[in-house]
Amino acid sequence: MTPRTMTAQPAIVVEHVSKWFNKRSTRSFKDAFISWVKRQPVRSQQFQALRDVSFTIHEGESVAVMGLNGSGKSTTLKMVSGVLRPDEGQVLTRGRVAGLIEVGAGFHPDLTGRENVFLNAAILGMSEKETKERFEEIVAFSEIGDFIDQEVKHYSSGMFMRLAFSVAIHVELDVLLVDEVLSVGDAPFRAKCNAKLKEMAAQGVTMMIVSHSAGQVKELCSRGIVIRKGEVVFDGAIDEALQVLEG
């Protein structure tokens, strides 16, 4: 443990968290239709996405959560964000938390970019005054220019993601949760996003990042948590975590 984490308060505490989902046993629409016609109940079975997951992230830490597809890493992030609730255990967070999990989830297609900035910023906990103060900065970072006054349903996916990302990173926050969103945009924009995240980390923002990019997590994180089949199998230095992930 570094001197920084020894003196810092916990920002995220995940204690003995387990989560189950129902998995339908019918294998196709045809099977489901036959079951419906015959008035047979559609059987479902429980799938355990997380099993007794525990870790603590201290204020100012940047931690990567890694694993193969289906390992449970995104479910873990959604637990911390409050999008999902654990079936067992508890998740505690300190301060204002913003999640780049489903970027633009709070955007409305029939509203303009400008209107959506205010809507999404409010969802993320910003006051109208705060948003007005940061509005020009948000638009400049997103690089969408005059499109800010067009309805977002006319945006390309790249424009949409850039604006949503820009809103989230300009919120006054204590904890930032990032889930695979830095694949958005072209290489220069991704580089700018990484630079902004490094700047936020230097300012003491706590970060929990899910990413498949070894280069990105090495640049942003000093610690890695590896999840395999819903269980934490490693929690330690980022270089060792990447070795465990590849092993």
Rank of each mutant, 00 (worst) to 15 (best):
T2C: 12
R4Y: 14
R4Q: 15
T5C: 05
T7V: 15
T7G: 04
V14T: 06
T26A: 09
S28D: 08
F29G: 04
D31I: 04
A32I: 08
V37C: 11
V37K: 12
R39Q: 09
R39N: 15
Q40Y: 04
P41S: 11
P41C: 14
R43A: 13
S44W: 09
Q46D: 07
G60E: 05
E61Q: 08
S62H: 03
S62W: 09
V63I: 06
L68Q: 13
G70C: 14
S71C: 07
G72A: 00
K73N: 00
M79T: 06
G82N: 01
G82M: 05
V83G: 00
L84E: 15
R85A: 15
P86I: 12
G89F: 14
R94V: 11
L100E: 12
G106F: 02
D110I: 06
T112S: 14
G113S: 01
E115H: 06
I123K: 02
S127G: 03
E128D: 07
K132F: 13
I138C: 02
S142R: 03
E143M: 02
R162I: 11
V171K: 01
E172N: 14
D174A: 03
L177C: 07
V178S: 03
V178A: 04
V181Y: 01
V181K: 02
D186C: 06
D186M: 14
P188G: 05
P188A: 07
P188T: 08
R190G: 08
A195Y: 09
L197A: 11
E199K: 09
Q203K: 15
Q203C: 12
T206L: 09
M208F: 12
V210W: 06
G215Y: 13
I227L: 15
K229L: 12
G230Y: 13
V232L: 10
V233F: 03
V233L: 12
D235S: 03
G236L: 11
A237H: 10
I238P: 04
E240M: 11
E240F: 04
L245C: 04
E246Y: 14
G247Q: 13
